[in-house]
């Protein structure tokens, strides 16, 4: 792989070609998506032989964020310091990849964007010492992102699959199937049809393997909105199942509340009805 203008020869390296330089960064998050790397086991060791892991604080390396081939970012933007860091790392990265709901949509903490009043001062006696932006936002709200990996959390397969493509300089095909399709593939009986359980499967990206339906519960949307999601018709069917407007709002405003399709539908039902 050639990385003109970005990759640097490794000091003391015996390999004829410089290894691709990779960084894994963390903003506001639970660290769960980084575990998709740390849980790779043997494959993590293989990876560390094939690429140069320049910076990955949770695993150890703390090298400078310069001349990067692939940068993975976990977490949402919520501080000035993180904002400055992302602006700088974008310039230094050939591919910038967001991993997980927080980096891709703003995450569960984006629920604070919808709250009114001074949240911070109600929790911290001295909020003025804390660097904190008004909103929790996705990385793509600040800089162009080359690849978005949805999921709360992302899986090791998503990480490895994207790495394989990116190391060849190509973006991987984007997954657009809905959880519904995954249930059909896996032969899981529809929880809505058979048990009248409200399920976000018809509007949510697959990637989890239809986990929640396989546990006899409805999907709660942790992989974010699928392509062209019919959020309104699903919301009406929730209403038909007996959900109140505020319950419908809470379904959409959850793990990925800041994803536009979910935000719009959640707001539509806020305050009592769908305004239709």
């Amino acid at each position: 792989m050639t990385m003109s203008g970005s990759a640097r020869p490794e000091e003391g390296s015996k390999t004829p070609h410089p290894k691709p330089r990779i960084a894994v960064l963390k903003l506001a998050s639970c660290d769960g998506c980084q575990l998709a790397f740390l849980g790779l086991g043997d494959k993590l060791l293989e990876l560390s032989g094939q690429v140069e892991i320049v910076h990955f604080a949770e695993a150890g390396p703390l090298g400078p964020l310069t001349g990067l081939d692939i940068t993975f970012i976990e977490g949402s933007l919520s501080t000035r310091e993180d904002r400055d860091m992302v602006l700088s790392v974008r310039k230094e990265s050939r591919f910038l990849v967001t991993i997980g709901a927080c980096a891709t949509s703003g995450g569960i903490q984006a629920l604070r964007n919808l709250a009114s009043g001074p949240l911070l001062s109600s929790l911290y006696p001295s909020p003025e010492v804390i660097d904190f932006l008004d909103q929790s936002t996705p990385v793509a709200s600040l800089v162009p992102v080359d690849l978005e990996l949805w999921g709360c959390p992302v899986t090791g397969d998503q990480i490895l699959g994207s790495l394989r493509s990116l190391l060849f300089g190509a973006l991987p095909p984007v997954q657009t199937d809905k959880v519904c399709l995954e249930c059909k593939r896996r032969g899981i009986a529809c929880v809505t049809v058979t048990k009248q359980i409200p399920c976000l499967g018809p509007v949510t990206l697959t990637g989890c393997g239809a986990l929640c339906p396989s546990f006899d519960r409805g999907c709660y949307g942790c992989f974010g909105p699928a392509e062209n999601p019919e959020t309104s018709s699903l919301a009406r069917s929730f209403s038909g199942l007996g959900l109140t407007p505020s319950e419908i709002t809470r379904r959409y405003l959850f793990i990925n509340s800041n994803a536009p399709a979910f935000l719009k539908e959640g707001r539509r039902w806020q305050g009592g009805d769908s305004h239709e």
Binding site: L27, A28, T79, I108, Q109, L111, L119, L123, Y124, I130
Partner: peptide, 10 residues
């Protein structure tokens, strides 16, 4: 210095 995520408020 993890950014606050304000779970108790959420």
């Amino acid at each position: 210095f993890e950014p606050p995520r304000l779970f108790e408020k959420i």
